[in-house]
Design a protein around this nucleic acid. Sequence first.
DNA 1: AACCATATTGTTAACGATAACATCATCGGA
DNA 2: TCCGATGATGTTATCGTTAACAATATGGTT
Lengths: 345, 345
Amino acid sequence: MARRVKSGLNVTLKEVAGSLGVSSMTVSRAINNRPNVNEKTRIRVIEQAKKMGYTPNLVAKSLVSSKTYTIGVIIPEISHAFFPEVVRGIEEATYDRNYQLFLANTSENFDREMKAIDSFRSKRVDGIMVSSSQTTLDFTYYKRILQSGLPLIFFDRCIEGIGASCIGVNDENSSRQITEHLIHHGYKKIAHLCGPRKVSVGKKRYEGYLKAMQDHQLKVDETWIMESGFKETGGYQAMKKLLELPREKQPQAVVAVNDPVAFGAMDAIREKGLSIPHDLAITGFTNDIRSALISCPLTTIHQPAYEIGRKAAIKLISTIENVREPVENIEVLSTLKIRSSCGCL
Amino acid sequence: MARRVKSGLNVTLKEVAGSLGVSSMTVSRAINNRPNVNEKTRIRVIEQAKKMGYTPNLVAKSLVSSKTYTIGVIIPEISHAFFPEVVRGIEEATYDRNYQLFLANTSENFDREMKAIDSFRSKRVDGIMVSSSQTTLDFTYYKRILQSGLPLIFFDRCIEGIGASCIGVNDENSSRQITEHLIHHGYKKIAHLCGPRKVSVGKKRYEGYLKAMQDHQLKVDETWIMESGFKETGGYQAMKKLLELPREKQPQAVVAVNDPVAFGAMDAIREKGLSIPHDLAITGFTNDIRSALISCPLTTIHQPAYEIGRKAAIKLISTIENVREPVENIEVLSTLKIRSSCGCL
DNA sequence: AACCATATTGTTAACGATAACATCATCGGA
DNA sequence: TCCGATGATGTTATCGTTAACAATATGGTT
């Protein structure tokens, strides 16, 4: 008959203890470098554990300590170059602090976002970091999460005013800055391809654009505000509509809500036979890798993605480990990347 | 005196049971839709559980079942656009099958790779997927992993012959194909900027290049084989050295081990005042997003990253759930992306 | 020799869920 | 009326680890 084999292939404390004729507590103490173990015993135990290929079972440990050293990360679109860079920053911080990272990509789908978070909760992560795809104004889901006491912080796509820390650039100021840059070029008729205004970044960039226009006493024609979503195709469609406006209403420049939207818009502009920036100037937001490489390099706002990720992770871990950690909005500095699409160079 | 509060904020089965005056088994059965529960009881239980905000504790469940519904993913470089796309594919497959995904980015550091895997093991992941940064020939680490019975599969950067499944494109054939494409252009003196030959992709792409040359009776000068690593700077350095060869030894075309190396090489070529592809043709491998956008678009091999990720995850989960799942190398098809840097167009 | 401080090791219960078995009520049929 | 089948529920032990307490040994002191 075949020897009876344990189903789990992993060696346990008890097995190590049994093979040495000591109790599992002694083994536990030896391995975790606790005091109150005879030095000779410790050495004997550690050697034997190594020989037997013992790996501590963190599942069991977590059950006792209600701590998993795990955080859950929710990102809306991993194909967008910005997010991998954020993840790299997160990883760097979690690695240093001995946390592990669950990743979920929601493809901008709020249903998936909630399911992923529910899974994370079931697995008892110590905290979660979210860049939300949330497009409605119903924040009750997140309010419930916060009430439950699960540490939560937002990055880039923030939901404010519900008691969670947020980390990202100042979208309003940055948008105002890039709009002003166009104004300094002398453009007066400036349109805005804006994201969904129900999403924080959509709303804030829109408001930054508005402020810049108002500060310089420029009239904003409401037909210039065109919802484009966040993707290339949306930018293309929205721009096409703008180009159908009567000649006297045609804008001289366009502030796009992000780089992909700007790319789509540029396609539409060229399709019309217009040249950039000569006939129409345009700016983006995010500094996609492609922006510097296209035939007319795009003027845009650079967001320090790596830093956002790292700081967000550090803030989350502080929140996890210290109950008194304050809730706050942390701003990281964006920089204006001037290239040719705005009319410079 | 303040009311005694449980430290863990999560409701347990027992608490739900207590509040209803039934045993925890009844609650467990009701919630997991087991038979042998009175329908009225089930409804009562489920309602109460919802009201109390009960979330099952998968940590405890895992301890009983030795199953975590979690897989660990190791990638060498998340900034490289190829890998986020792979991760997206993995995510898609794991999401459908109710697995969660631990992600670790090793920054091409083998030490970090091992540490991450050890962490994964301690957390009792059901399996791991690895694209290794391994640059030595010492595979004992992975052999031990396999011996321990932990399901493991490699993707893109494979370690073969140790009993784990591998998924990726056929590097040798693809490299041969792109080299042949240059040969058809009429080039006879073709150099190779090769990756570390201790890494499987480095070795195979080198061999593909060699085969193509031999098949067409072209002589390979050994000074044309230049180790460049996998990064842009390596490509730049290696190309510089190639350009210092005496005039009669100068190659007419260069096969680079991947796109970043090709980009570096292109910088070196232009610095010398030479034009691409007129004075020197060049090809890449990987289809980086940038490749289509640079001033002389790069001819390269497109690898279906999303598909690699998805298939790898599916294979891993099959291996986890079915002991008899065979070990095999799975090839996905690459496609030759012809652009201008090879001399076409 | 009696005693106490200290070092070392062991025992028990708990974390939250569930498998396996035990108990109890109910009901139809002989 | 009694029996066994069935349905509903409860009890106990377990997964691997550790906190808290208990027990034992060792050595020094008076």
